[in-house]
Design a protein around this nucleic acid. Structure first.
Length: 464
RNA sequence: UCCUCAGUAGCUCAGUUGGUUAGAGCGGCGGACUGUUAAUCCGUAGGUCGUAGGUUCAAGUCCUACCUGAGGAGCCA
């Protein structure tokens, strides 16, 4: 009478009662008296727990004493319709094996709720909470849906390098990668470090974007995407920034900026739909605990078109808004957080895609418009989290691209391979970057990006 | 990096114009209870008041520096 090992998810959905089953999982709570005890067991397969009913007389006292919050047990017994209220099925324990104890004196997770700040300090244990179980399942589901969307639409997953030899991506401060002895650096007379003896024989860093390499893939496979870790050594201390995060970057040959916007909008809506369809229980939990409007907001996003306006139009709207902004708006300056929030949350009340920014405030690779002063960049702005996507049509004209590189004094010699795509069979193409954690943040309704990645890396924090 | 706020028991917090032995709830531990749902009830232990200086007869409380955390801003995804 062993019973097949099943998950909590399988057992809670089962209607085959009065059969012997086996469950393995972690104890969330135990309560009871001298006669009967109840242990709620969870194995992460679903947010709900399975109630294990224990006839105290049938088991060793020491064993029961060690079944505490956080301990891990292996239970065989009969699956029955619950005799009590609050759950439909429960497990009548016949045999219990204790896998691992959890000393109640020191185990930090209690039955009651904890602050998210405290849970960040015990990130090694927080996956065992309802909140992080829900977030991590949704995170997985989104990652899966991303691959599914692209695969179903003819995109190829391109693995761009994590270690990069170019620092001209222009997306922020980089983390140095070196095997040089930091206590004895090879320095010349002028104090310049000689990297010729370093592992790669040159200065290398962790990538801040896979875009440039992504473009190389798109110039052969037509439709590619990347999905990998990305690193920024910015001293950013906000609920929306991480030093190590995951980014999705589709890049498509023959797409102009309008195709690019269509892709971005369809992609985001697909991902949100996928989670609405597949993570109902987890979304409902997060809605009840953290964000009362979560599910309505997600449905709202999917049932409305994103507003598409040019940067110039956005400036007009802001100038005519009558709002007092801390940073005054004028054509040529970048949109501040307060401006973006006004457009998204007050004026349009839905996601907004802003396009055609001034050339001076955008990256060198964006396609120049005929007006000579704007480029075909696009930012997708979401309520609550701001910029979720940044992208553009790329400049495919070799001479125009070279002109920008020279104007910005970028190191041309490091970009020879990138420039070759404009020399040999150049084509119009477009792409964008989606911050994965920002997407998870929006979909889960959580307030801090450090709570949607298992082990966050931020300034002064690389624990675990 | 800048601005603001915070740091007191395992957790969440209270602590008066500076004044005797620093409190509560939850959690833990012991006990009661024949089906509980964040169980309930009774009892009990638990403190380097972030760190280092300083002011004072006296500092959890006031001052300075630093550390850590949170929120806002910048940078961005």
């Amino acid at each position: 009478m062993k019973g097949k090992k099943e998950t909590v998810k399988q057992l809670l959905n089962s209607t085959e009662y009065d059969r012997t089953v086996n469950i393995k999982g972690w104890v969330r709570t135990k309560r009871g008296n001298n006669t009967i005890a109840f242990a709620a067991i969870n194995d992460g397969s679903v947010i709900h727990n399975l109630q294990v009913v224990i006839d105290v007389q049938k088991f060793d006292e020491d064993l029961l004493k060690n079944i505490t919050t956080g301990s891990c047990i292996n239970v065989t017994g009969k699956l029955v319709q619950s005799l009590g209220k609050g759950q439909t099925v429960e497990l009548q324990a016949e045999n219990i094996e204790l896998y691992g104890t959890a000393d109640p004196e020191t185990y930090p997770l209690q039955k009651k709720g904890h602050s998210l700040e405290f849970l960040r300090e015990i990130a090694h244990l927080r996956p065992r909470t309802n909140t992080f179980g829900a977030v991590l399942r949704i995170r997985h589901t989104l990652a899966f849906a991303i691959h599914k969307y692209f695969n179903d639409n003819g995109f190829y997953y391109l693995h761009t390098p994590i270690i990069t030899g170019s620092d001209c991506e222009g997306a922020g401060e980089m983390f140095r990668v070196t095997t040089l002895d930091l206590k004895n650096l090879p320095v010349d007379d002028k104090g310049t470090i000689d990297y010729s003896g370093d592992f790669f024989g040159k200065e290398t860093n962790l990538t801040v974007s896979g875009q440039l390499e992504g473009e190389l893939g798109a110039m052969a496979l037509s439709k590619i995407y990347t999905f990998g870790p990305t690193f920024r050594a910015e001293n950013s201390n906000t609920p929306r920034h991480l030093a190590e995060f995951w980014m999705i970057e589709p890049e498509v040959a023959f797409y102009d900026i309008n195709d690019n916007m269509d892709l971005a909008e369809d992609f985001l809506k697909y991902l949100i739909s996928y989670v609405l369809d597949n993570c109902k229980d987890d979304l409902e939990f997060l809605q009840n605990m953290y964000d009362k409007e979560l599910i309505d907001r997600l449905k709202f996003i999917n049932s409305n078109n994103f507003e598409r306006i040019t940067y110039t139009r956005a400036i007009e709207i802001l100038e005519q808004s009558g709002q007092q902004f801390e940073f005054p708006v004028h054509w040529g300056s970048d949109l501040q957080t307060e401006h973006e929030r006004y457009l998204v949350e007050k004026y349009f009340k839905k996601p907004v895609i802003v396009t055609d920014y001034p050339m001076a405030i955008k990256a060198f690779y964006m396609k120049q418009n005929d007006d000579g002063r704007t480029v075909r960049g696009m930012d997708v702005l979401f309520p609550k989290i701001g910029e979720i996507i940044g992208g553009s049509q790329r400049e495919e004209n070799f001479n125009k691209l070279m002109q920008r590189i020279n104007e910005l004094k970028l190191p041309q010699k490091d970009l020879w391979w990138y420039l070759d795509t404009r020399k040999y069979g150049s084509a119009p193409h477009s792409g964008f970057g989606l911050g994965f954690e920002r997407l998870v943040l929006f979909v889960t309704g959580m307030g801090n990006i450090r709570d949607v990645i298992p082990f966050p890396r931020t300034p002064k924090n690389a624990e675990f």
